[in-house]
């Protein structure tokens, strides 16, 4: 079997372009990538026919010299399926745009939450250790400690604000992520932000 080199080169270039487009974030680009990639693949399927021959008709052609019709049937099936999937992706890009104002594919929020939680917990533990290792803390040190803790919490809140558009907000991320912190109730100022939550009320009472 001989294969046309130009067909192969075209197919490979299309596949490469499609694959690169599929690696981007916006759904519309992914959609274009999928279309181009599938065109490349369909060319590959046609290339598997070998040398081109006569049209595969029942009458009027020499049946020994016709092109193999089976890859064409396979390619047709693939084209139809790609059409359906493309339509679905288009609808999805539009819906995504309706909801979030952008059609970008987002990171998985839960994964980010778990990473963030681990980071914040370790930073907080470190901070506490530093604060407690010395002798009696001065007012200045205490203020700095409080400031640091506030910064950590703000980081989580900022992240939540970024994510709020993409998910159904489930309350306070601070409590979502690490649960209520009893140390917050030792000082009046800090408890204010969290007293909407029943769990925290219990903490404050105890």
């Amino acid at each position: 079997m001989t294969v046309s080199a130009s067909l192969l080169v075209t197919a490979v270039v299309l596949c490469a372009v499609g694959a690169i487009l599929m690696l981007t974030r916006p759904l519309t680009r992914i959609l274009l990538g999928a279309v181009i990639l599938s065109n490349g693949v369909n060319l590959l399927i046609l290339a598997s026919t070998g040398t081109a021959g006569a049209a595969p008709l029942l009458y009027g052609v020499d049946l020994r010299r016709v092109t193999d019709p089976l890859p064409q049937a396979i390619a047709l099936t693939a084209i139809v399926i790609t059409l359906g999937t493309t339509a679905f992706l288009l609808a999805m890009a539009y819906r995504s745009h309706q909801i979030t104002g952008t059609d970008e594919v987002h990171d998985d929020l839960e994964d980010r939450r778990i990473v963030l939680r681990a980071e914040v917990l370790s930073e907080r533990a470190q901070l506490r250790e530093e604060f407690r290792s010395g002798s009696e803390p001065t007012a200045d040190e205490r203020e700095r400690y409080r400031e640091e803790r506030r910064r950590l919490r703000d980081r989580l809140r900022a992240d939540r604000a970024r994510q709020a558009r993409g998910r159904d907000a489930s309350g306070d991320l601070w409590n979502d992520v690490i649960g209520a912190d009893p140390e917050d109730y030792e000082r009046d100022g800090d408890a204010k932000a969290d007293d909407r939550y029943p769990r925290d009320e219990r903490g404050a009472a105890g």
Binding site: M22, M92, R95, S96, V105, D108, R165, G166, D168
Partner: peptide, 15 residues
């Protein structure tokens, strides 16, 4: 239903 989280989850799966 096409809600936000489902679209996000769906896009990963579809791609």
């Amino acid at each position: 239903g096409g809600t936000g989280p489902r679209m996000r989850a769906g896009s990963t799966y579809v791609i």
